[in-house]
Design a protein around this nucleic acid. Structure first.
Lengths: 110, 110
DNA sequence: ATTATTAATCGTAATATTGCGATATTAAAA
DNA sequence: TTTTAATATCGCAATATTACGATTAATAAT
């Protein structure tokens, strides 16, 4: 049916899935990496940096913003986008935690 | 067009996007969490645990396996699935690294 | 050998995503 | 005020994803 049964999963699971899904496209990973590498983060710069048309970039930015992975500030008639540090930290903590649990867990199989 | 322009991005970006995409569904997050919580990890148990039909679970498992997030061992006529520790660790390291770079970086905007 | 059990695959319908040209919106600049 | 510049939104085509019933494949149990 193409529709996710999000109702059957808990908030943490849905939240994590939303974050991962938002990062589940190379262009959006590239945007995050670009934002990490520059001081000034104007949308137009991203359009120049990536091999995608302006409406496409705008759409990807919207998805990253919806997932709370970036935030945008209006600067004149441009928009300054930045990574939301807290969200990245949340992901770092989740995967750290998972990784540590796995290390502790005795490999009973595989 | 619905097709990702993966050719234009580098291997790291494509790899990360593939991993995140595979985790970008609550059912697949739930599967990872379930595998983390049990010692014995038989496919049938996942089917009983999650509110999805057996073919759907099988499909989700396939995607996790393709992304190298889990591995499966044949045990008689059942299949024992386990989390691939290395892949989770790779994600943990990536988000840690990103998080640390963000902490260092002076917030010039936003 | 036959029957159950377990999991993968096929086929298909419903929905979502990706990408971009065209257009709208908003604010700066002239 | 008109023009220019920067982004967002609309609309659409191509493709991908999600879900599951039906079936298949493979092993275990009887």
């Amino acid at each position: 049916m193409g529709i996710s049964k999000t109702t059957f999963f808990n908030d943490t699971q849905n939240h994590l899935a939303t974050l991962c899904k938002a990062l589940g496209h190379p262009a959006r990973i590239a945007i995050i990496q670009y934002l990490l590498s520059v001081e000034n983060c104007i949308c137009g710069d991203i359009v120049n940096e990536l091999p995608l048309a302006q409406p496409t970039i705008s759409q990807h930015l919207k998805e990253l913003k919806n997932a709370n992975l970036i935030k945008g500030n209006i600067e004149g008639n441009a928009i300054c986008y930045c990574i939301n540090e807290q969200t990245i930290q949340y992901l770092a903590e989740y995967f750290n935690h998972t990784s540590q649990l796995l290390a502790k867990k005795k490999a009973t199989c595989c």
